[in-house]
Design a protein around this nucleic acid. Sequence first.
DNA 1: CATCGACATCGATCAATGTCGATGTCCGTC
DNA 2: GACGGACATCGACATTGATCGATGTCGATG
Lengths: 133, 133
Amino acid sequence: MSKSPAACDVGAPEGLECCVPLAREPITPAQADGVVPMLKAIADPARLRLLSLVLSHEGGEACVCDLLPYFDLSQPTISHHLKVLHDAGLLHREKRGTWVYYIARPEAMRALGSLFTAAPSPVPSAALAGAGA
Amino acid sequence: MSKSPAACDVGAPEGLECCVPLAREPITPAQADGVVPMLKAIADPARLRLLSLVLSHEGGEACVCDLLPYFDLSQPTISHHLKVLHDAGLLHREKRGTWVYYIARPEAMRALGSLFTAAPSPVPSAALAGAGA
DNA sequence: CATCGACATCGATCAATGTCGATGTCCGTC
DNA sequence: GACGGACATCGACATTGATCGATGTCGATG
C-alpha cells in the first residue's frame, strides 16, 4: 500500500511497514499482511540458509552457482527459492554477464529485526519502553 | 535439553539455537531446522496478530476470550493457531479456572530478534552494513 | 552461426496447512 | 447432579507450497 511511513525511512520495498515493535501495540491486520510475506519467505530451511549464505558470502553477494553446492536440491528448486526471497523483497537480483548475483537488502533485514527488538538505530530507548505516545 | 549452547544461555526451549546472527556465518542446516518452526509459526497473519495482541495486552498475557473479538475466525481456528504458537515455543499456556491464559516467551522473542540484528559484540559484519558502518 | 553453460519457467505431483462445524472435556454455578 | 460457558480436539475440505524433470532463454565462446 502506498502510505508514507512516518519516521524511519529506510527505503522499504512495497509492503514494508517498518518500525513495528510487535509488543508496543497490536499490529494491525494491514501491517501483518505487509510483513507476513517476508516471514513466509524465511520460514523454510532452504530459504533461511540461502539468505544466510548470501549475507555471509564474500562481499555480501553470491551467484546461484555459489549456492548450489550447499544443497541436495535441484537447480530449479534453488532458483525457485531465490525467486521467493526476491519477490518478498529480501534479496536484490543483479545479472552480470552469464551469472546472476543475489544481494540481501539491509532495509528488509532491519525491518524484520525491528519486529522483535526494541528499535535498534532510530528512536532508541523510549520506543519499546513505556513510551506513551 | 540435551545439548549445551556455548555462551548466551537465554533458557531457550527445545530447538532454540540462540545467538545466530544470520549474517555472521552461514547458518547450519541443523540451526535452520531449529529456528524455522518459530518462523513458520509467525508467518501467518492471524498468528502474528495473536502474538502481538498477547505481547501488547495488559500484563503481557491474554485469555482466548480476550483475543476472539479481534478476528473473524471461528473459535476452533483461533484455538488451533494458539496451539501452533505454543508448540513452537513462542507462547506459554496457563490454565486459571475456566480460562486459559497465553503469555509470550521473552527468550523466544530474543532468539528471533537475534537472527536479524547484528550481534552486540564482535565484528560488525560488513556484509549487512552499508547501514550501521 | 553452432554450441555450451548459467539460470529461469513450466507442468505435474504429493504433502502440509488454514478453515470450518460438530463434538468432547473441564470448571463453576444453580 | 444438571446446566452453561470456555476452550480443545476431531474429521473433512480446499488451498497452498515444495519438489522434480523437461524445456526455454540468454550470454559467451569457438
